[in-house]
Every structure is written in structure tokens, then in C-alpha cells.
């Protein structure tokens, strides 16, 4: 069982289970190279977590799916996230503060 904060500073999106979630996971692995990407699957959603900062780029997600992916495509499939969010022109950055 967790006590407050013992998940360290893991941050990142919570995605609705499905093909966008799978592509987001692959993209995050690529865009956060050299850093551990932790996943936690639940029946309807998946948590994707990276320590301190997690970068998600729309173009990389699009490469995984072979089609253009927009901010809206991510938002529609992202019911929550851990940490704080910063939307940027080409993607989303999740930060611990």
C-alpha cells in the first residue's frame, strides 16, 4: 500500500486502454530515451510513468500509428495524469513541479 509520496516523483499520463494508449507508450519510450518507463495496467486504463519529467510528442505518437495525431487525439484518450502538465506546441510535458 502506498503512503503519500512514496511513488517518488513518477509523472506521466493515464490513458484509456486502446490503440492510442499503446502508441503513446511506445512514443514515450522513444522520447524519454535512456530513462525507465514504468507502466501499470488496469482494466480500462493504463498508467505510464517516468521519474520527474515525461515528454510526449504528438509526432512520435503519429509515427507509431502511421497517421497524424493532434493534441485533441491525446486529450480524448487521457482521463488523468500524474504530476503537473505543460502543453507545448508539439507535445505535452509532465513535470513533478
Amino acid at each position: 500500500m502506498t503512503t503519500e509520496g512514496d511513488a517518488g516523483n513518477l509523472v506521466g499520463p493515464v490513458m484509456r486502454a486502446g490503440e492510442i494508449a499503446d502508441a503513446v507508450l511506445e512514443a514515450i519510450r522513444e522520447d524519454n530515451e535512456g530513462r525507465e518507463v514504468v507502466t501499470e495496467a488496469h482494466a480500462s486504463y493504463i498508467r505510464i510513468k517516468v521519474a520527474d519529467e515525461c515528454v510526449l510528442r504528438y509526432e512520435t505518437v503519429g509515427d507509431m500509428l502511421g497517421r497524424t495525431v493532434t493534441r485533441g487525439d491525446i486529450e480524448s484518450n487521457m482521463p488523468s495524469f500524474a504530476g503537473f502538465i505543460r502543453t507545448e506546441p508539439d507535445g505535452i510535458r509532465f513535470v513533478a513541479r
Partner: peptide, 9 residues
């Protein structure tokens, strides 16, 4: 976990 961390951060 998730929310309490934000309060403190």
C-alpha cells in the same frame, strides 16, 4: 499518492 503529491509540490 497522486493528489497528495500535488498538494505538497
Amino acid at each position: 499518492d497522486q493528489f497528495a503529491r500535488n498538494i505538497k509540490a
